[in-house]
């Protein structure tokens, strides 16, 4: 209890006395994870919908692989992205390694399977209900996919939030490809890892509370948005 209490007061002090340093770390965390979430959603939602609707050879295998990739270890994703972006790697000339751009790439790859797999399931379930109606109205599979994505938008928000939560919480991938460079690629999770390394456990846990508060705030905002939309009956 004593340790947790100390961490709690460290968290409060961090927020009250928040300096530019903390805010820039928080802002970078949000920027990186939100950008990764937007990109992963832009790819993962249509991908999930098409896998749900389209029949193609190897579809079941694709579904199994997609579902399995939800459990990708962040460090492995980080390593793969590191090897790709390293100067000695195929994408080295881009000079992205140890930049926030590299962290966005890694987190995008990490959460893309989550968003795609969960939206595939949501869209597949809805397809059972909509199939005859949409076919009758003349929709092809691409049009049907777009319609279902729109009609399932509230359920799909859960898929997107799951992706964001994972992106914001992971440390392994961003540490490897970002390098935890002070003021450049240091985010909430890598700061927590660093403070833990320094043995400053209350500070680490305090940062953890701040991170949880941020994720909570994003989820609350999403829910508020959803409720506002639902009140309008959309």
């Amino acid at each position: 209890m004593g340790d947790l209490g100390q961490a709690g007061s460290a968290a409060i002090q961090l927020i009250l006395g928040a300096d530019v340093r903390l805010w820039s770390i928080v802002a970078l965390s949000l920027k990186v994870s939100l950008a990764a979430t937007v990109i992963a959603a832009a790819i993962g939602l249509p991908l999930g919908a098409l896998v749900a609707l389209k029949d193609f050879p190897g579809r079941n295998l694709a579904i199994v692989v997609l579902n399995a990739c939800m459990g990708l270890p962040p460090v492995v994703v980080g390593l793969v992205v590191y090897l790709l972006l390293s100067r000695a790697g195929p994408l080295g000339p881009l000079g992205l390694l140890f930049t926030p751009g590299a962290m966005i790439v890694a987190q995008t790859l990490l959460i893309l399977p989550i968003i795609a797999a969960v939206s595939r399931q949501i869209v597949a379930d809805a397809w059972g209900e909509y199939r005859e109606q949409l076919t009758s109205l003349g929709a092809g599979s691409v049009q049907a996919a777009a319609t279902l994505l729109y009609d399932c938008r509230f359920s799909l928000m859960t898929a997107i939030l799951a992706g964001f939560g994972r992106a914001a919480a992971e440390v392994g991938a961003v540490l490897v490809v970002g390098g935890n460079i002070d003021g450049v690629t240091r985010v909430m999770t890598t700061s927590i890892a660093l403070e833990t390394s320094k043995g400053d456990l209350p500070q680490a846990l305090g940062l953890g509370f701040v991170l949880m508060a941020i994720v909570l705030a994003v989820n609350a905002a999403a829910l508020a948005l959803r409720n506002a939309a639902a009140r309008q009956g959309a």
Binding site: K31, V32, A35, I39, A42, T99, P100, G101
Partner: peptide, 9 residues
Amino acid sequence: IVALMLLAL
């Protein structure tokens, strides 16, 4: 998306 990427760089 592009704007977000640029923002984050």
